[in-house]
Simulated scan of single mutants.
Amino acid sequence: MKMHNFKYEGSGLNRFFGPLEAKIMEILWTTTAALTIKEVQAKLDQDKVMNFNTVMTVMNRLVDKGILQKNSVARSFMYKPVVTRDVFMETQSKELTFDLIEEFGSLAVTHMVDALDKVDPDLLDKLELKIKELKKDR
């Protein structure tokens, strides 16, 4: 699943989701079982009172986007993420990287390498190993 609205000004999940979507996803990702809308609403209510219909609308939009799975159980619906948070972030970062390289080519790669030096020196070693693996496989 590729998210189409990446926000540069956000951070974390807020780069991919609206504020309420991000809170809902965080709740569902930190819970091991599927939850109902009321259960999610109750967890959201710890911050402030949230309207049931608003939560339902947002959760159903996340289903439409392919982020949540919705199953009928008894007389209610249970929602759970399609993938884990880690898998989601891995997939989105990969898609974003591919898009940047496709559009900006060597400029994107150069800027990524420059950023590695500022963020974490160990990443340069990992990058060097990855490049060696790629060259070996060709």
Rank of each mutant, 00 (worst) to 15 (best):
E133W: 04
V49S: 12
A33V: 00
T36Y: 12
L62P: 00
K80P: 08
V49F: 03
A74Y: 02
A22H: 06
E128I: 10
D86A: 15
F88N: 09
K48A: 15
V87R: 04
L127C: 07
T97F: 12
V82A: 06
R75S: 14
F17W: 04
L28K: 01
I37V: 15
F52C: 08
D99T: 01
T32Q: 13
F17D: 13
R75V: 12
L123K: 12
V40C: 09
M112N: 07
I27A: 05
V73C: 08
S72G: 03
L62D: 09
F52K: 11
V113F: 14
S72E: 12
V40N: 09
D45G: 15
Q41D: 03
A115R: 15
V58C: 05
I67T: 01
I131V: 15
T36L: 03
I37K: 10
D86C: 02
K135E: 11
T30M: 04
L124F: 06
E26S: 14
S76V: 10
K43M: 11
L96S: 05
D64C: 01
V49I: 08
V73N: 12
L96G: 02
K48L: 05
L44C: 09
L68S: 08
K135L: 14
L100D: 07
F88R: 04
N60T: 12
F17V: 10
T97W: 01
Q92H: 04
D122M: 03
T84D: 09
L129K: 14
E90S: 15
L44R: 07
V82M: 06
K70I: 07
